[in-house]
């Protein structure tokens, strides 16, 4: 059983929900990233989602786009993040998911990348521009190395599509709270509860909700309907604009979840 499965199992046993913060690796630099991952763990993060910067992050809103630009300017790449992981694993066993886009992985070489990532202790991937129907070979490589692949269910996903996404996903299923990109204002659409309810019936796997969750109140209401809550843009923004109060903000989010 890998770190992500263990995490969700022990949370379930204690009746808790997973708090999954996201930060952009390399924003503003790699040393700060190390410091912040350790801080997130200390503040009670169950899993950490690390954004690996890509030049064209089409699923991301302006906050994360700008963070990616800063990280690329700092010279961070997929290759450098593997070296980072090797360092991190000497100090922490917090489950780590890379969120990146497909082209850097394709360029690296899919199979080699999965092997290298498994060797340095990465636990899974979220690749928003890779739909399950194009992910066959990546899923196969990940399964053979015990890595998780997490796919996204959108509010517009049909039931048939949900089934496909659920079966391609391992670790958990990522429920996108709205149609749109990261960091948009959250608004609970009418059919949201029905839709996520249907997903739960189908899934049998943990479901984490992300996109647009920016306050402890948002986090609390999302935690009530899912197994985990992902907070990205709001944390990236806090670290960038007001790093002195980041710890307190993250603790509040943790408590809310």
């Amino acid at each position: 059983m890998n770190r992500i499965d263990k995490t969700f199992r022990s949370l379930k046993e204690t009746g808790k929900k997973a708090f999954i913060p996201y930060i952009m690796a390399g924003d503003p630099d790699i040393d700060k990233t190390m410091e912040r991952v350790l801080m997130l763990e200390e503040c009670g993060a169950d899993i950490v989602e690390l954004g690996v910067p890509f030049s064209d992050p089409v699923a991301d809103g302006p906050t994360i786009q700008r963070a990616a630009e800063r990280a690329l300017a700092a010279g961070v790449s997929l290759r450098k993040m593997l070296a980072f992981m090797a360092d991190l694993r000497k100090r922490s066993q917090v489950p780590i998911i890379f969120m990146t886009y497909y082209n850097p992985i394709y360029k690296y070489g899919e199979e080699v990348f999965v092997t290298d990532a498994a060797n340095v202790g990465v636990d899974g991937f979220i690749i928003p521009d890779l739909p399950p129907e194009e992910a066959g070979s990546l899923i196969k490589s990940c399964r053979s190395k015990g890595l998780d692949t997490i796919f996204l269910v959108a509010p517009t996903s049909t039931e048939e599509r949900m089934k496909r996404i659920v079966s391609a996903s391992k670790g958990f299923v990522y429920y996108v709270s709205m149609t749109g990109i990261t960091g948009t204002k959250l608004s609970l659409e009418d059919h949201f509860r029905n839709h996520i309810g249907r997903l739960k019936d189908l899934s049998g796997k943990p479901i984490a909700i992300g996109f647009g969750i920016s306050t402890p109140d948002d986090a609390r209401s999302m935690a009530a309907v899912a197994d985990g809550v992902i907070v990205g843009s709001a944390i990236v923004k806090k670290f960038h604009e007001d790093p002195g109060n980041a710890r307190e903000f993250i603790k509040k989010l943790r408590e809310a979840v």
């Binding site: 890509f54 030049s55 064209d56 690329l72 790449s77 997929l78 290759r79 082209n103 850097p104 992985i105 394709y106 360029k107 690296y108």
Partner: peptide, 10 residues
Amino acid sequence: YLLQDDDGNV
């Protein structure tokens, strides 16, 4: 075909 660097950035 794509104009990209060694890390796959465009």
